[in-house]
Write a protein that binds this DNA or RNA. Structure first.
Lengths: 304, 304
DNA sequence: CGCGCGGTGAAAGTAAGTTTCATCCGTGGT
DNA sequence: ACCACGGATGAAACTTACTTTCACCGCGCG
């Protein structure tokens, strides 16, 4: 027997609610009561059980089912998930985050977290957007072919430098990092053609790093700079320049966003180098992972 | 009878999937099969009936229910609607980025950059979403009131630990970091009531860090853990637990995304502590900035 | 060697969703 | 005025989905 008209809602991309309210007048009174509840608060409706919803609409479960069919659903469960999905989508769009700016003086932790995360994520994304793949490619190539790699950085950028060094080392490249300027200078003096010196400085004005890069360059090494400012002094002593895109909020002198951006770049270079020789990199990584295995304890399942 | 620990997922605004993947290693094998299906395609899972899902995971309905409870849901229907909601939200733009997964073997630099940046940014955002402001608040408070702060971390997490130490130090808090386990243990043994020990470990299974935290705790210090896995061993020796939300691609053993996530958390804590006493923090920051001024060179800035 | 315990699925039990059907009520034809 | 008719509706039967219980298995530990 031919059942109800059944309006197709199978693919109502964004408009289940709209769809329902559209055919609201064509529904029977009892179904309308259900429909109104659903339209008024989809998320809430999705949470209810069919009996619950029926009671709320002062009707029977049967009517709710009929309503489901009327709007083109197979049954109640399907309606439920669609409603949940619908409700979730129509929540966020208008983003009310504290964009870009500083952290307001009276902010609570939740606000602080949202702001920082937003800026950090932003810095990462924007950095990626403005990174020049061609330059990256050259850097990757240079590193891959290098006899020795020195990574320089001071202060906050020192962590990044150190990190990069460690990463390269893990995939079997000969890389160094020096926390101390004198040692760094010494090392730079020993570089030569075919070697690489990478200087990291957010501001691009850190004289120590610039000086070391200069030294390295004068010895014939290829120099690479990673900075946030494309025309800062450090770029003048670098053969290849990579830039980050971070806008720091004044309150975070630690240069956090910039550091995340730097790490992202380092990461890209690292993966690029590793991808050059998958097999070798993989072997090296596995070996290093194996090495620390003894320092791991078993997975701590639920507390017994 | 006391049921399982039940990690709160009651309000996991955007991070159900993240939450689940964090809990993954602490689940039993059969539950892990279910979890993997769910994480792989939440929308699809939401469409399935419990029997269907159980079959797909080659297990019984009972296990699926157990899985629901393990991740903090009341039952299967609740999981279902949450998944539907989740899935609806994460319909990423038209973008066909290689999400979460590995970098394809033949990828060029541009692809690598896009993928990494996407995952990194994602890790930062998701971490922020699932961070519990209340716990952060407690940590901030503890740090603010602490006589001494020790930050521990090994390997990649060591950089983060070191970074945190340096940041705290810059705003005038007495903080230490030790690259060496023995020294760290020694230091931990000297901690007491009112002091804080912070242990950072992505996997939460680094025995060195756990050991040190344990030592610190036995001396009466408040212990804080920062890890990606809410039920890993490290959480058992921590009074306060903060979690990151990073899904690593296998090719990046360096745990990059996780490190960005960790840094974001560190940042939040740092700003939180600094905000506690704006004046003092500001003064300290200015003083430290002034100190390195001599190491900066001229024009530098922007397009100088 | 056996004791206990976590993990597991079969099966029993319960709740949710669906169908059936009798009733109600308004309508229009006689 | 009466009564057939048909749509709307909810009670109850029925089916399916979800949840709980329980016995078993395999494994680590004393």
């Amino acid at each position: 027997m031919v059942k109800s008209p059944k309006i197709s809602a199978s693919r109502e991309p964004g408009g289940l609610i709209v769809h329902i309210s559209g055919l609201l007048p064509s529904l029977s009174p009892a179904e309308q009561r259900v429909a109104r509840l659903v339209v008024a608060d989809p998320a809430d409706a999705a949470r209810r059980t069919i009996t619950d919803l029926a009671t709320a609409a002062e009707t029977s479960e049967a009517t709710v089912i009929r309503f489901c069919r009327s709007v083109g659903m197979d049954g109640y469960p399907q309606l439920r998930i669609r409603l949940a999905a619908e409700a979730a989508r129509r929540v966020e769009p208008p983003d009310a985050r504290v964009v870009g700016g500083d952290i307001p003086p009276g902010a609570d932790l939740a606000q602080i977290i949202a702001t920082i995360a937003f800026n950090d994520a932003r810095a990462v994304e924007e950095t990626a957007e403005q990174l020049d793949p061609a330059v990256c490619e050259q850097v990757v190539e240079t590193i891959s072919a290098a006899g020795r790699i020195d990574v320089y950085g001071a202060g906050a950028s020192g962590f990044v430098a150190s990190d990069f060094q460690q990463k390269l080392h893990r995939i079997g490249r000969t890389a160094f990092y020096f926390p101390d300027v004198h040692t760094a200078l010494t090392s730079a003096a020993l570089l030569g053609r075919g070697d690489v010196a990478i200087g990291i400085s957010h501001t691009g004005t850190t004289s120590d790093v610039i000086e070391v890069l200069e030294q390295a360059r004068s010895r014939g090494a290829t120099t690479v700079a990673l900075t946030n400012f494309p025309r800062s002094p450090i770029t003048e002593v670098a053969d290849l320049v990579l830039t980050t895109a971070a806008r720091e909020t004044t309150y975070r002198s630690g240069a956090t966003a910039s550091r995340l951006a730097q790490l992202t770049v380092v990461d890209c270079l690292f993966v690029g180098v590793a991808a050059r020789n998958r097999a070798r990199a993989k072997r090296a990584l596995e070996a290093t992972a194996e090495a620390v295995r003894g320092h791991r304890v078993g997975p701590g399942r639920r507390r017994g």
